[in-house]
């Protein structure tokens, strides 16, 4: 079973090809380049290094969000197009779960998060090596997230390059219970994405057309429109 993994949901880029559970090639970049420019050349380069052709893969895993709207769409568009035209199943994995998977050996609660600005975050809470969901991934205020974590009263591993933005707040709320992941595991890895994807059942090829990003937020215009409708 050969997997291609594509992770472009935030500013880091990661692409991997994994064969029968073995990572053949993987790239993890954090140089803030445009995914639209770098993602496809990187995919081409990895196929070349793995001495493979596009048709050789059996399935595609993509990070489906949340994160940067444009970033998610670039990964999802590439993954959808490849899966559809090569007739391979496409598996989506939450970008928060991909990140949490970097801390799966931690004995406690794992919280992965991305900064969603204005003191809001996209966050997920998991525990155990099988990343059991403690809180569904969502868009929430940092304060609500921290009070929920506080109520669990267990050590929490925070993962994500945006954790830095909330460090003081986290320490204040959770004190000794807060543990911060080292920077070497704060970047999402496409090999981890594939690992999580492999635990899911493979969808049928027909489902590729209906694959959509998980933004976890309405577009502003749509949210406003819904508000207006309610007022009427």
């Amino acid at each position: 079973m050969i997997w291609l993994g594509i992770e472009t949901s935030n500013s880091p880029l990661s692409i991997a090809i994994v064969k029968d559970g073995q990572v053949l090639v993987e790239i993890v970049e954090n140089v803030k380049l445009t995914h639209s420019v770098t993602a496809m050349p990187t995919i081409q380069e990895l196929f070349h290094k793995a001495k493979m052709k596009p048709m050789d893969i059996d399935a595609i895993a993509v990070s489906e969000g949340p994160g940067s709207y444009t970033g998610i769409r670039i990964g999802v568009t590439i993954a959808k197009t490849l899966a559809w035209t090569l007739k391979k199943p496409l598996v989506g994995v939450s970008s928060l779960k991909v990140l949490a998977a970097n801390g799966e050996l931690f004995n406690g609660i794992i919280c992965s998060l991305f900064d969603a600005r204005r003191q809001n975050v996209y966050a997920g809470i998991y525990q155990g090596t099988d990343l059991e969901t403690v809180m569904e991934e969502r868009h929430t205020s940092i304060d609500d997230l921290l009070s929920q974590l506080q109520s669990l009263n267990k050590p929490v591993l925070f993962i994500g390059s945006d954790v830095e933005n909330f460090k003081e707040n986290i320490k204040e709320q959770l004190g000794e219970l807060a543990i911060f992941a080292p920077s070497s595991i704060t970047l999402p890895r496409a090999s981890k994405l594939i690992e999580v994807a492999e635990t899911k059942s493979l969808p049928s090829i027909e489902e590729v057309h209906h694959f959509v990003p998980q933004y976890h937020r309405l577009a502003q215009a749509e949210a406003n429109w819904i508000q207006d409708q309610k007022k009427r």
């Binding site: 596009p54 568009t77 490849l82």
Partner: peptide, 18 residues
């Protein structure tokens, strides 16, 4: 730009695949 990127990345993925 966001709209253009969908067509462009689909075109690139399709071109690469074939």
């Amino acid at each position: 730009v966001g709209a253009l990127l969908i067509g462009i990345n689909a075109a690139k993925a399709f071109a690469f695949a074939h």
